[in-house]
Computed example of a mutant assay.
Amino acid sequence: MSEVKDEQSLDQTLNIGSEITLGEGIVKHVRIGTIGMIRKVRQIMKGKEYKFSFSIGRDKMPATDTRPEIDFPAVEAAYKEAFNLVLVEGLTEEEYENVDENGLKELDELLTRFL
């Protein structure tokens, strides 16, 4: 029991929060949110109204009379930048490409605690 408490205390000291699984062999730790971290994530995600899963692999959507142009590749890139900020170990391009359906759900919800 003391070993678990020591590990939790060390994790908090290192700003390491919960663990998430994004796919087979892809386990990441989420940073504990600080005010500075929340500010950075909010700045990156400012104006990004679409869910991560919706944005993946879409092209730019031209503007209409009621909606401005949506640059989905830029939205996806912003999410990737934010994920690398909030995940202690970051997310390599290979890991990113191998995120499974459950991991996609995790990533869709990951930033909510920072926004």
Results as ranks from 00 to 15, higher is better:
K80E: 08
F52M: 07
E106L: 10
I35Q: 09
L107M: 09
V75S: 00
D59Q: 07
T92N: 06
Q12E: 12
I20Q: 09
T34L: 08
I16P: 05
P73S: 03
E89S: 01
T21G: 10
Q12F: 04
L85D: 05
G90W: 12
I20T: 13
I16T: 06
K51N: 15
V27A: 00
I56V: 14
L111V: 01
K5R: 10
T92Y: 04
N15P: 08
G25D: 07
G57P: 10
L104M: 15
T34K: 06
G47E: 06
E101A: 11
L91N: 04
G25A: 03
G36E: 15
K105N: 03
F52E: 00
S2I: 10
L115Y: 10
E106I: 00
K51V: 14
E93H: 07
I70D: 01
E3M: 09
I26D: 01
D6F: 12
T92D: 09
Y96E: 05
R113D: 13
T64A: 07
I70E: 00
P73C: 03
G25I: 02
S55H: 06
V30I: 15
M1K: 11
M61N: 11
M37Q: 02
G57N: 13
E49T: 10
L111Q: 03
G90L: 10
T21C: 14
D100M: 04
T13V: 12
F114N: 00
A78W: 05
Q43W: 11
T66I: 12
K80P: 04
